[in-house]
């Protein structure tokens, strides 16, 4: 092990963590909102929209992340340019990566939300209606909280998945953790050191995320009967 390298490289790799987290968080927020909308559209069988959503979900789930990233990276500038004439060279690569990651999260989370909403007994909605609540009130206060409790373990998996997925953004030129480690390792061929650092960082991020989700899960599941795990 080259400890001088580790000492020099570590702060720089650590400094790239916010880039990774920014990508993951923004893509998760956008992706999950779209995911909920898709889930609701498909459950309510809204004509045309529902079919388009089904194809979208199937497509995104069938295409590897790298290809999604490349397509977003090459297609979006073309689309933006031909639609608005705006020069896209000034748009940082991270935004293309966020688009690709968001689409990925939207597709996968929509399946999670759909199953979670299905798991909430229809009687809950009817009971809310029977006391005079509007559908929106019923969804927001009764159905969604219960569905979220069901969805959380899977959402936790999706979030850790997206953290791992951000490592591929390296291939469209985003300087996140992986890209930074690569850049630093190459001149002196300090591969083992660089990737051990990276591994530890990813493992720690995953660990912390799992903990956070687990805590949220316990809180959200207070209402459920205690079962032996």
């Amino acid at each position: 092990m080259n400890f001088t390298f580790i000492k020099e490289a570590l702060p720089q790799v650590l400094a790239a963590i916010p880039v990774t987290l920014e990508m993951a968080l923004v893509a998760t927020i956008i992706g999950w909102i779209i995911g909920i909308l898709i889930a609701v559209a498909r459950r309510n069988k809204i004509p045309v929209v529902s079919q388009i959503c089904a194809v979208f979900v199937s497509f995104i789930r069938g295409v590897p992340m790298v290809i999604l990233l490349y397509v977003a990276y090459y297609a979006l500038p073309m689309m933006i340019y031909s639609a608005t004439g705006i020069d896209t060279t000034s748009i940082p690569a991270i935004w293309y990566a966020i688009v690709a990651l968001s689409l990925d999260q939207a597709a996968y989370s929509s399946e999670v939300f759909r199953a979670a909403l299905d798991s909430v007994n229809r009687g809950q909605l009817e009971a809310a209606w029977s006391v005079g609540m509007t559908t929106w009130q019923a969804m927001r206060r009764i159905v969604f909280p219960q569905a979220l409790a069901v969805a959380l373990p899977n959402l936790s998996g999706l979030f850790v998945g997206i953290i791992k997925g951000t490592s591929l953004a390296y291939y469209v030129g985003v300087y996140e953790i992986t890209a930074t480690a690569n850049l630093l390792a190459n001149p002196g061929l300090n591969f083992i050191e660089a990737y051990v650092i990276t591994t530890v960082i990813y493992e720690l991020i995953s660990f912390i995320c799992n903990r956070l989700f687990h805590t949220a899960e316990t809180r959200l599941n207070r209402f459920r009967p205690k079962t032996v795990a």
Partner: peptide
């Protein structure tokens, strides 16, 4: 299991393809 679930496949590839031979 938790180690493999926490590490991006890309990093695992780099670690084994570039790092392991060095070690």
């Amino acid at each position: 299991v938790s180690f493999m679930r926490g590490i991006p496949t890309l990093i695992l590839i780099f670690l084994i393809y570039l790092g392991l031979p060095q070690v």
